[in-house]
Amino acid sequence: MNLNKDSILKTGDWVKGKSMDGELVIGYIESLSILDELVKVNVITSDNKTTVGKTIQMLNKNVKKMPYSKVANKEQLRFLIDLALSTGDEDWFNELSSQVNSMRQLVNGVK
Rank of each mutant, 00 (worst) to 15 (best):
K18N: 05
K18A: 01
S19W: 01
M20Q: 08
D21T: 06
D21C: 03
G22A: 00
G22V: 00
G22E: 00
E23P: 04
V25I: 13
Y28M: 07
Y28F: 11
Y28C: 08
I29M: 08
I29E: 05
E30W: 06
E30Y: 08
E30D: 10
E30Q: 10
S31P: 06
S31L: 04
L32N: 11
L32E: 13
L32C: 10
S33Q: 06
I34E: 09
L35S: 14
D36R: 13
D36N: 14
D36V: 10
D36T: 07
D36W: 03
E37G: 00
L38E: 14
L38S: 07
L38G: 04
V39S: 07
V39N: 03
K40V: 13
K40G: 00
V41P: 08
V41L: 03
V41F: 02
I44W: 06
T45N: 10
T45R: 10
T45F: 06
T45G: 03
T45C: 14
S46C: 15
S46M: 04
N48C: 14
N48M: 06
N48W: 14
K49R: 15
K49M: 12
T50E: 15
T50F: 00
T50R: 08
T51H: 12
T51W: 13
V52D: 12
G53Y: 02
K54L: 12
K54W: 03
T55H: 01
I56A: 12
I56K: 07
I56C: 13
Q57M: 13
Q57T: 14
Q57Y: 14
Q57F: 14
M58N: 00
L59W: 07
L59K: 15
K61R: 13
K61H: 06
N62P: 02
N62R: 01
N62D: 12
V63K: 02
V63Q: 09
V63A: 03
K64E: 05
K65L: 11
